[in-house]
Design a protein around this nucleic acid. Structure first.
Length: 424
DNA sequence: TCTGGGGTCCTAGGACCC
DNA sequence: TCTGGGGTCCTAGGACCC
């Protein structure tokens, strides 16, 4: 196999520059959805040492000093530019996998009789001409190796790097494990504990060790480094399995009213997305979290199964609000207060016994799982799903609310979201 | 004060049944 | 009543990615 990874350089910034040529050679950043942090950086920004994901407030002084141009992200524009790039690439190989908004894998196996360097230059020039977007291309035997080759391409003058079999050993010896695709912080730490620091050491590690420490995911990476294709090109995009709408709040949210408003807004967004993509949901999930940057961050989610699949906002909202109540009244509080949890579980068990079977059947679709119930139970002998009849359950929540809101003061929500699953 | 949003895949372990 | 194996299904949580 010969696989090319095409990667658009500083993609969002490049898109902005296409429509505003004055930005050429100027320092430019594009911010995340909420304008919270940097998600795309021009070369000039990288040279200033501003990292990916840096929060905006931390670079305020640099912005003034270097006259940095700042943009909120415009995903409609980027998506459109992305399609143009991908369409162009399809002229160069019949087998193209659109991997992300700014990356694609191309199968070049049929073209090995050509000068691949030349061919890749041709691709670069055409994409540049037709779309205005600069790209880099790395080529090798597998996706994982092509990813590494692409890193080299980015650093080279020509923007193209072909990693030949004869050069792989030297190349991998000079590559640290962190730079291998699929090796994140957690895996890298595990590998280093086992004395594996370079990509070459990883390639030569024993299958048994890797399987045990990193599972099949890790093993696939190792085999790919050895030149064996374990991650074949996916030529048709599989249908999505879930979609999510979430935001961080600019300040902590402590009232149920505010939380409900946020969730209602996210739900209608999710409904729009569903209808646009002609999909329907079979379950919804609501989640809330405290700041990730405090000492003991807490997050929790509640999943509500729907009686029928739907993409009607009103319908979704009904169940989303049930989930919101659950999160607010119980979800986070459960994890916080173990003793209280035990008491509540006890209460709920008695409730369950009072129900007759018919009720349970009838309301099964309203089953609300409260995550984390098992967390502090120790042996796991007591694990219960709280099966509830929504109206009476909500009434009970109302009665208990003073107790919970007291607990709640300790747990300001700074992030909330809503996701829709359509597995069935 | 302010720290993104949106995804996928894998696994361990519990529930439930025979 | 206790013990246990085999199998399936489901979920939470952890890992990764852009």
């Amino acid at each position: 196999m010969m696989i090319a990874l095409v990667d658009c350089n500083n993609f969002y910034v490049s898109c902005e520059r296409v429509f505003n040529p004055k930005l050429q050679d100027k320092p430019v950043v594009v911010l995340s959805n909420n304008d919270g942090c940097v998600v795309a950086r021009s070369q000039e920004i990288k040279a200033l040492g501003i990292g990916m994901g840096t929060p905006l407030f931390k670079i305020q002084s640099l912005i003034d000093r270097h006259k940095i141009q700042i943009f909120s992200s415009n995903y409609t524009l980027y998506g459109d530019m992305s399609s143009r790039v991908m369409e162009t690439l399809k002229h160069f190989s019949p087998k193209v996998e659109v991997y992300s908004i700014d990356e694609a894998f191309l199968d070049l196996s049929q073209l090995v009789h050509l000068d691949l360097t030349d061919y890749c230059q041709q691709i670069r020039n055409t994409v540049r001409q037709w779309t205005g977007i600069p790209i880099s291309i790395g080529v090798s035997q597998t996706k994982t190796l092509a990813k590494l080759a692409n890193k080299m391409a980015k650093d080279s003058e020509t923007g193209v790097f072909i990693l030949l079999e004869s050069e792989i050993e030297q190349f991998l010896k000079e590559t640290i494990v962190e730079d291998v695709w699929g090796i994140g912080r957690g895996f890298a730490k595990t590998l280093r504990i086992n004395g594996i620091q370079t990509a070459w050491q990883l390639r030569n590690a024993s299958d048994g060790l890797i399987k045990q420490e990193l599972g099949v995911v890790g093993l696939r990476i190792v085999l790919e480094l050895r030149g064996m294709v374990c991650l074949p090109l996916q030529l048709h995009q599989p249908t999505k399995k879930s979609l999510m709408v979430s935001r961080s709040f600019s300040r902590p949210v402590e009232s149920l009213t505010e939380l409900r408003e946020a969730i209602a807004l996210y739900t209608s967004r999710a409904g729009e997305k569903l209808r646009r993509q002609k999909l329907a949901a079979s379950a919804v999930r609501v989640f809330a979290a405290t700041s990730r940057f405090v000492e003991n961050p807490v997050s929790d989610s509640v999943r509500v199964s729907l009686p029928v699949t739907t993409n009607d906002t009103g319908e979704l909202l009904h169940y989303a609000l049930i989930g919101t109540e659950a999160i607010y009244r119980e979800g986070l509080a459960y994890k916080k207060a173990g003793v209280m949890m035990l008491r509540l579980v006890d209460e709920h068990i008695q409730q369950l016994h009072l129900w007759d079977e018919r009720d349970r059947e009838r309301y099964q679709h309203l089953m609300v799982m409260v995550d984390g119930i098992n967390q502090q139970m120790g042996s796991g002998t007591l694990r219960y799903s709280l099966v509830k009849h929504a109206p009476s359950w909500l009434a009970r929540c109302e009665k208990r609310s003073p107790y919970y809101t007291t607990r709640w003061d300790e747990l300001p929500i700074v992030r909330a979201g809503y996701s829709v699953l359509y597995l069935d």
